[in-house]
Design a protein around this nucleic acid. Sequence first.
RNA 1: GGACCGGUAGCUCAGUUGGAUAGAGCAUCAGCCUUCUAAGCUGAGGGUCAUUGGUUCGAAUCCAAUCCGGUUCACCA
Length: 596
Amino acid sequence: MSIISSIQQSVTSSLTQIFQQPFTEKDFQVNQTKPEFEGDYTVVLFSLVKMLKQSPDSIGNTLGQHLTENNPGLFTQFNIIKGFLNLTVADDYWISILQKNHNDSCYGKKEMNGKKVMVEYSSPNTNKPLHLGHLRNNFLGWSVSEIMKANGYEVIKSAIVNDRGIHICKSMIAWQLFANGATPESTGIKGDHFVGNYYVQFNNEYKRQVDELLAAGSNKETAEKEAPIMKATQQMLLDWEAGKPEVIELWKKMNQWVYDGFDITYKRIGSNFDITYYESDTYLLGKDIVKQGLDKKVFYHKEDGSTWINLTADGLDEKLVQRKDGTSVYITQDIGLAQLKYQQYNIDQSIYVIGNEQNYHMKVLQLICQKLGMPNADGIYHLSYGMVELTSGKMKSREGTVVDADDLLDEMEDTARQHTEALGKVKDFTADELKELYRVLALGALKFYLLRVDPKKTMVFNPTESIDFHGFTGPFVQYTHARIKSILRKVNPETIWYNSSIDTTTPLLALEKELLLLLEQYGTVLQQACKEQNPSLVANYVFQLAQTFNSFYATHSVANAESDAKKHLRLKLANMTANTIKSGMQLLGIQVPERM
RNA sequence: GGACCGGUAGCUCAGUUGGAUAGAGCAUCAGCCUUCUAAGCUGAGGGUCAUUGGUUCGAAUCCAAUCCGGUUCACCA
């Protein structure tokens, strides 16, 4: 149980005993005490003043007395300032947390709860390489999965690959027209970039043809429809759907190039999936559901034969679920896939990590599933995240203003190398060890940068300033870990500290206690991060922990502490801090090096 | 126009189940490496919490109105 819960319980029970009437935890508030006052946790008394019709001072005094007398192991003293009852928690309490958990790698995590969750993220298109926006999606999906695991859920990571449709045909047509048989192998270009280049070429050529038609006197609409390259693309989509062998073959070949490229990037960023769905397999799903929906009168036909659902009663619009020619639309496929997921995995919750531009769509999806009576419709949750914008505005592939994932990673690794070389602390590392260190630091900086912000908020990336390695950053936290490990490495673990118990007669110093207070909160943070599906809570926590340790480190010596008892305590404190940093960073998908 | 999201320091962001003098990082300035890793630490300056009104012991946080920005409302995906 967390210290806050303990305090809430004892306050509730004290109040009930003193005033002879029932109280609950909602009748008062418990906060951490502000640093300028004496005490650890504070009971805010104002809400009780009204209920009890007594002055805050009088309530505080009675309550403070009762609490300290009846919970001697928990509270040692109290003071009252302007309606705030500040309680000091006994050193023994903090030390016992340290004693018990200092080397527990599962500290703060929960037992399995028997619930199963699918987290769908990444969802790339196979016509262009990954960019910064995809990275935010991937890191979020991964981290939320890990956070849910830490809170006892069984998690299945899934991806849906958008591998068909008109946009895929665009790069195929462009390749046919312009490539002269070139391949990633023949050019030495990474597969996803190779294909992405033809997508760009398509757009250039298309624009050229449209301009030509416009110059010849066509109006805009006709020109856009009649451009030969667009007509060829549409024909190719029809051929694809008809299963024309040479089109399918080309499609498979080019998609494979992209997958090979993606694999490299995914491996590099440490991303993976338990199951990958392909839209070419799922785009026909959902048709039987349309039938069922019609039978259940959830859907209805219009006179032209198209199928609709009316969501105006729920504040939304009418929505098409099947075209008049009987083909399905996006939402239909999604309903089908949602059902497929439940059938395959019997999941309790289905989380979709998708950008906030699809808020409306996801709302509609859930509503339709609910109206169809699908068993787990309530378990659909859209983890909606904001776009990554540049200081110059939005990223647009067509205008060439996207920040490419591979380029960015290259740059960051180079920055990591420069910092490391300048500091010269790891000169004995082999070339492979150095390479791995640069990768870990670069990724740490990037992941932390993207995850420290509240997911639902739009965030701004400045491409001209490289991502920092100082301050509120991944490398700062990684550094703190390495620093602690350096201390521990120099102490023989078989001596005093590791297994023996801590001497409790010397009082805790302010910074020691501050660290312990923070360490105690880890479990609560994980719980909150899970509840809100918000990794930024973990990032902020882990930063604060590292920062507090560094202050502590600058003031007190661990290895050369003033007494053996203090040395013992601080070694455990350092060890627990390192473990908690490692654990928290792992939930963000960030590794922490032993040395850097 | 309807719906949804946002507006906090020069910049990037925390803080919203209402609580004490609104916090970090970056940038700027001033200090700290004969002792455990200075990717660090200490300190200073920097705020009309978009605006106005309301609710109350108390509002960045709740309510209303207004202004500004974004997304969305396709027989595209």
